[in-house]
Write a protein that binds this DNA or RNA. Sequence first.
DNA 1: CGGGCTTGGTTCAAGTTTTAAACAAACTTA
DNA 2: TAAGTTTGTTTAAAACTTGAACCAAGCCCG
Lengths: 175, 175
Amino acid sequence: MTTRWLTPEEQRAWRAYMAASRLLEDAIDRQLQQEGGMPHLFYSVLAYLSEAPDRRLRMTDLAERLKITRSRLTYVVTRLERDGLVRRENCRWDKRSSLAMLTDEGVAVLERTAPGHVETVRSTLFDRLTPEQVGQLEEICTGIARGLQGEDDASGAEDVPWRRRSSCSSSPASS
Amino acid sequence: MTTRWLTPEEQRAWRAYMAASRLLEDAIDRQLQQEGGMPHLFYSVLAYLSEAPDRRLRMTDLAERLKITRSRLTYVVTRLERDGLVRRENCRWDKRSSLAMLTDEGVAVLERTAPGHVETVRSTLFDRLTPEQVGQLEEICTGIARGLQGEDDASGAEDVPWRRRSSCSSSPASS
DNA sequence: CGGGCTTGGTTCAAGTTTTAAACAAACTTA
DNA sequence: TAAGTTTGTTTAAAACTTGAACCAAGCCCG
């Protein structure tokens, strides 16, 4: 089959996207590194944990939310643990699992860092978007994400008789 | 001043964006790595060079387009040069500058790799977007990029008496 | 029950990137 | 020409990422 090249509009959108995403990630990383001493990914871990019931999450669940491999997460959590922002705990129900838990110090760091981070996200992103655009962005991105998520198990999803094992956390976290 | 936290809509959009951008970049990197033996950034260098007049570009100009530091670019180009896909040349007009030039082999690799790459961009991104959404995405991203670009020199731009030195390339490349 | 498969998580080693600071050479400009 | 800029590279140290290999625990089923 002959290649379906990008149309000029798509080409422009793609270029714009690449530029924006790189610049955005750079800006956010720089800010977080300066004021929080950590890269964006680390911050995200703290943020997700802070929202979880009991401030703890299974490694696998956390990795899934962050869209990173478990191996990568192990590295990150080890580093955060070294700094005392996170602690590992064993799961009582499933002895294979380990839970990452946000420590008090982690909470403190997060609370100290969050305002600056949010301000950056605001000034670089949302301050330049109309409310409609915010909606558009969400819709576009959820579509993309859904497409890329399912891909893995979408093909044979029907064969699988179960939905999802219950996590160790007391209640299911959204998103 | 008290922090302007994200609204629920913004929160959702931001989360969706982070997920989508990570998944997208992963998918593209994986494809390019498998079928082209190089990461996305390397491919981008080849792509930009291929569009440039005479298939060559000043390092600084290239770095600017890619939104990366010159240092980073030096690394990338060195690697590409080692593989014979790119060659460095001296600029006749400005002896400080060096030009990165796409070799014939680079062209060949690009032509061999491009279809698969484009197909991936299509299937992961554009196939899931309506034409309106493509336009929306472009608009959103150019806005973000412009905001983050200008930031550097925007503050004191009026003080600067010059606009931009002419590049060594014979004609100005778009974007 | 007891293999055999799956899942959760870590370890390990090897590479790859990235960063930042320091330089030298080439321009510019006053 | 001297001071200041811009270009591009070098360098060394960190930081990160990957993938394969592993182990332990849980699950499934005859």
